[in-house]
Computed example of a mutant assay.
Amino acid sequence: MNNFLVLIPARAGSQRLPDKNLRNLEGKPLIGYSIEYAKENDFEDIVITSNDPRVLDYAVKRRVQTVERPDALAGDEEPVFTAIQHAVSQLQKQYDAVILLQPTNPLRPKGLLKEAIAIFEQEACDSLMTVSRNEHKLGTISNNRFTPYNYKMGQRSQDLEPLYYENGLLYIFKTELLKEGKLLGEKNYPLIVDHPFAEIDIDTEADFKKAELYMKYFK
Results as ranks from 00 to 15, higher is better:
L183I: 15
N21S: 09
N3T: 13
D45R: 02
Q102T: 15
I141A: 08
I117K: 05
C125L: 05
A87E: 12
F81Q: 09
S142A: 02
P196Y: 09
F81A: 13
E121Q: 11
P18E: 08
L100I: 10
T175Q: 05
A59S: 08
E166Q: 11
L169D: 03
R54N: 13
D203G: 15
K152F: 07
V60E: 15
Y149K: 10
D52L: 04
P79I: 09
I117N: 05
H136C: 00
A118M: 05
G75F: 08
L30T: 03
N24R: 12
E78P: 01
L101C: 12
A72G: 08
A74W: 07
L113S: 06
L100K: 11
Y37P: 01
V131W: 00
V193L: 07
G27Q: 03
Q94W: 07
E68G: 08
N41H: 14
L56Y: 05
N167C: 09
A124I: 00
F43Y: 12
A10D: 10
G154Y: 07
Y149V: 06
Q85V: 08
A74L: 06
Q15F: 11
Y151E: 08
E212G: 04
P196I: 12
S127M: 00
L5T: 03
K209W: 00
P18S: 13
F197K: 04
D96Q: 14
R156I: 01
D45N: 13
G111S: 11
E186H: 13
L112V: 05
N24K: 13
N105D: 12
P103H: 10
A12W: 06
F146N: 04
R16M: 12
E115L: 13
L22W: 05
A198W: 05
Y37E: 02
D194Q: 14
F146K: 03
L5D: 02
K152H: 10
F81C: 10
P29Y: 06
L191K: 05
L17K: 07
P53L: 04
L17M: 11
P196K: 09
I117L: 08
R108V: 15
R63W: 07
Y33H: 04
D71N: 15
N143A: 09
K20I: 12
E121K: 03
E166R: 14
R63C: 03
Q94K: 15
A118C: 00
R69N: 15
Q155N: 10
R54F: 08
I8P: 07
S127Q: 00
M153R: 14
T147Q: 13
G139L: 01
P148G: 10
G139D: 02
P196A: 12
Y171M: 13
A59E: 06
L183P: 03
N105R: 15
G27K: 05
P70T: 10
P70W: 05
A74N: 06
S34L: 01
T82P: 00
N105K: 14
L25F: 04
E123I: 06
